[in-house]
């Protein structure tokens, strides 16, 4: 029981980190970046290559993956999404799906479709054993990383000038421009942060589930998107809560109900939540005085 809970928290933390990327990009650019999941995959491959071929240690290879994905995020935004800033949201959505396929196929060309066995980058830390309960080190690192990221992001958006500008842009781009805020740069920074987080999520995900394929990012990507909607898209604590709940529900469904049906159960819960509270668990619905 406790083991399931720990596994759930661990998986949920990965979802939460990915969901943060979705939610931030949505909050500011008002677009669903469906290629986000594939950035996770790229992060995984980069970390894989830097440990296996370059012989870097766990932390340098994670950092390297973060850097590569951050740059990737900025480049994708600049080339694919920026020209569509004033286009309909449908055009942007289709482009995002296109970027997703592009990244998957590029990975297919570079790394082939053979699954790579990902080295557990946090495996050097010993597991914690309490009586019969074994807490895997991956789970601990994942949960701690998630908490740190969450705290840092909350501080960033609440305290720093750039962070506040992001919130201003997410609310009213035109008014933000009138303040002298460079909206395009703010959106780039958001993509950079989201993609950097995706790289971390990729390393953590592959450390827990060590099969790396070009499609590795798709399913966690969709689940994390669900988590973001579940928690209330656009809300940082919402992404966190949604991710963790989703992970726990998924693991418990797998353990007690059915492995095959676990995804169906997860999405069923999402549907129920959206029926009851359409803005998600922590979705903003501020009544505005006029």
């Amino acid at each position: 029981m406790l083991t399931y809970l720990i596994n759930g928290l661990s998986l949920g933390s990965v979802y939460a980190i990915i969901a943060l990327g979705y939610t931030m990009v949505y909050g500011i650019a008002k677009m669903l970046n469906f290629a986000h999941g594939d950035v996770i995959m790229v992060g995984g491959y980069v970390a894989f290559c830097s440990t296996s071929y370059l012989g870097l240690g766990p932390i340098p290879s994670t950092l390297f993956a973060v850097v590569v994905c951050t740059v990737l995020g900025i480049v994708v935004e600049r080339l694919a999404y920026k020209p569509l800033r004033n286009a309909t949201s449908l055009a942007v959505l289709i482009t995002a799906i296109g970027v997703s396929y592009f990244l998957q196929n590029a990975a297919l060309l570079i790394w082939s479709s053979n699954p790579k066995s990902f080295p557990n980058l946090v495996g050097s830390i010993p597991n914690i054993v309490i009586g019969e309960l074994v807490i895997p080190s991956t789970a601990i690192v994942t949960v701690i990383a998630n908490l740190l990221i969450m705290l840092t992001l909350t501080m960033f958006t609440g305290r720093t000038k750039m962070g506040k500008a992001m919130r201003a842009v997410s609310e009213d781009k035109g008014a933000a421009q009138l303040m002298g805020i460079n909206v395009n740069r703010t959106i780039s920074v958001t993509f950079a942060i989201g993609s950097g987080l995706a790289a971390i999520a990729g390393v953590l995900l592959c450390s827990a589930y060590p099969t790396l394929m070009p499609t590795t990012g798709s399913m966690p990507g969709i689940k994390a998107f669900t988590a973001a909607v579940f928690g209330g898209i656009g809300s940082i604590p919402g992404a966190m809560l949604g991710g963790i709940l989703l992970g726990v529900i998924e693991i418990f469904a797998k353990a007690y109900i059915s492995t095959q049906l676990s995804d169906a159960i997860v999405f069923a819960v999402l549907i129920v939540v959206l029926l009851v509270k359409p803005t998600g668990l922590l979705g903003k619905k501020v009544s505005e005085k006029v």
């Binding site: 506040k164 609310e171 035109g174 303040m179 805020i181 909206v183 505005e288």
Partner: peptide, 30 residues
């Protein structure tokens, strides 16, 4: 538009368009 402000020209737009979810101080900081 974000560079026009630097020139010393500021527009207080129609309908106020304050940042509803930010605090008063944060709005002023922006």
């Amino acid at each position: 538009p974000h560079k026009v402000v630097n020139e010393g020209l500021s527009l207080c737009p129609e309908g106020r368009r304050i940042f509803q979810h930010l605090t008063v101080l944060e709005n002023l900081e922006m």
